[in-house]
Design a protein around this nucleic acid. Structure first.
Lengths: 331, 331
DNA sequence: ACCTCGCTTTAAAGCGCTTTAAGTCCCCTG
DNA sequence: CAGGGGACTTAAAGCGCTTTAAAGCGAGGT
């Protein structure tokens, strides 16, 4: 297995300098059409590919965006996909770093910094604001999907208040008045959604009923059992996320509570789960593609347009109505 | 935002050469305890971190393993996690490249090659053997989870035949004789499992009954409906993967078929799904950690131990018995 | 014939780090 | 006290590419 060809090999084969070859291969202006053609041909023949490490080193700018994600999170998967696409468009590469059992956020971020990423996009980070703030001193950071106060990071998220509100108004519009909420626990996101639920219910003059939960299927199953057995069962249930909703649906099914016949159920996230035919869950869509695009834009506007002011972008989510909601049984 | 400190800055602050500083920072032998201490202190003060691109370039060896994955696949997530851990142990870094809407396997692999990864680990690649073979000429490749004939790649996978066999013998041991199989479609993996089912059934002197499917929940739901409505319903169902099993369970639940009371169900993969309390599915575990470790070992043994012979490692899966299987109702 | 002016091409200087061969010291032998 | 070692340290040569300043080179102008 001989060494991979170097730029010098391509240049030598054509009989030009490496400078010219480099120019051609990057599509930079300068070289004549003839030179261009011959260099390209030689590169193709040799199967030449530029060495990324060397290229990055020589370039003043790195044109790399670091993305911190949890590879086990399906929502992150969607985001990564769009980030890739968008970064491509604006001429940036993407470097991925995932959390693992013994690589926490700090460590993963360090990997990204070692690659000298010019900016970081952090998907739903759990780190405290203080850490994010310190990090932001070193490199532009964009936090996606989480509210962050008191840190110099840019934020792209969607408004949980609006999302919950839309879902509740859908239910209220169908005629529901006894609408329970299955909670998502202590995380920043869960708190926001619960607060939104309480506010909308109060404004609508309805009584709030919050059932404990934790953003997992099992939490939903527990809440579902509780609700199914309750004396004056609510006619509709809104959950803090889709996984909870799936658990609730499962518990209802086993308890013989029909959905949406006896009870309507609404989820949050419009995840792949919600779209499955046999789940067919009405849910709030956060528009992952838009969040991803905006995150990349935020990073790039700092890097290329010299923006320095902090930016917070709050997207408006929308409700996707499916088969798990209907008007309450009359009487 | 001033430039990040360079090795030269650290060295200058201590008053030693960059050579010494470099040695210290990599823990290489040579520098005295005193030098070591002072360099480390200076590096800490300056918040110095080595530039990966520069380091890679200067090093003869890159010590990087490229991993091709699909970020949407939960099984890949598990593998990536373990690969990271194992690579760490043997002194390799991991570079991730994921498939996205418009980045196919070929393109993702090119990214990895641009990073000059010394070896590639491909998680369940769909590319034809010819492509894998060509690729393997350029760089050591390890394919995980898929059988590959006629390509110079190393393979790490688990034996589907043994897995299916174990699951069926568990059912037969419980007293089942009418055991249906929900198929996974045309992929290499699905074919293997179906074949295993047919063989074991035949050897056991039982009649095979294969229901079409496609490795998705929806496929499982369709198969489940069919089975629930069948005249002489089987007393047990084995599925080609967990997602199918989940669909089957759902359909059974809706049709009033109790599991494991009326029918036992077995899945394949022992995914996170199977472990959920309300699903509690008996399933075949493929030991992802072991596959990951072996994949890394295979790569490293080529790189560091000079192995050149092709290697194929077939792991023995084991059955995890949970609540979805029981003896058939007597009579 | 001499200049100036574009268009191309290129020599050479890095990018930030690793590595190797060549020192430098200092202490110990003989 | 010369010579030999051992323990450290460092100058310098890259790694493979980008980039910049300057050199070439015809063509057109005077």
């Amino acid at each position: 297995m001989d060494q991979r060809p170097r730029l010098a090999d391509v240049a030598a084969r054509v009989g030009v300098s490496t400078a010219s070859a480099s120019l051609v291969l990057r599509g930079a202006p300068g070289p004549s059409a003839q030179t261009r053609e011959r260099v390209l041909a030689a590169a193709a023949e040799l199967g030449y590919r530029v060495d990324r490490a060397a290229s990055l080193l020589a370039r003043r700018r790195r044109h790399q965006l670091g993305v911190l994600l949890d590879v086990r999170n399906p929502f992150h998967a969607e985001l990564v996909e769009e980030i890739h696409v968008e970064a491509d468009k604006v001429g940036y590469e993407v470097v991925l770093a995932t959390l693992t059992r013994d690589r926490d956020e700090r460590r993963a971020v360090e990997t990204l910094l070692d690659f000298r990423c010019e900016a970081l996009i952090l998907l739903g980070p759990d780190s405290p604001a203080s850490f994010l703030d310190t990090l932001a001193q070193q490199v532009p950071c964009v936090v996606v999907g989480r509210m962050v106060r008191d840190a110099a990071v840019d934020v792209v998220r969607s408004s949980d208040g609006v999302g919950v509100d839309a879902a509740l108004h859908h239910l209220i519009g169908l005629g529901h008045t006894r609408i329970a909420f299955v909670d998502g626990g202590r995380g920043a996101v869960a708190v926001d959604r619960r607060r939104g639920y309480r506010r909308t219910m109060q404004r609508a003059g309805l009584t709030a009923q919050v059932v404990g939960g934790d953003h997992t299927e099992d939490g939903g199953v527990r809440a579902g059992r509780l609700l199914a057995a309750a004396g004056d069962r609510p006619t509709a249930v809104m959950t803090s996320n889709d996984r909870l909703a799936v658990g609730v649906l499962d518990a209802f099914l086993r308890a013989g509570v029909s959905v949406p016949g006896d009870v309507s159920v609404v989820g949050y996230d419009d995840s792949v789960l919600a779209r499955l035919a046999h789940i067919d869950l009405t849910s709030v869509n956060q528009d992952a593609p838009a969040q991803a695009r905006n995150a990349v834009q935020a990073a790039v506007s700092r890097l290329d347009a010299g923006r320095t002011a902090r930016s917070e972008m709050v997207l408006i989510p929308h409700l996707v109505v499916r088969g798990s909601t209907a008007a309450p049984a009359s009487g």
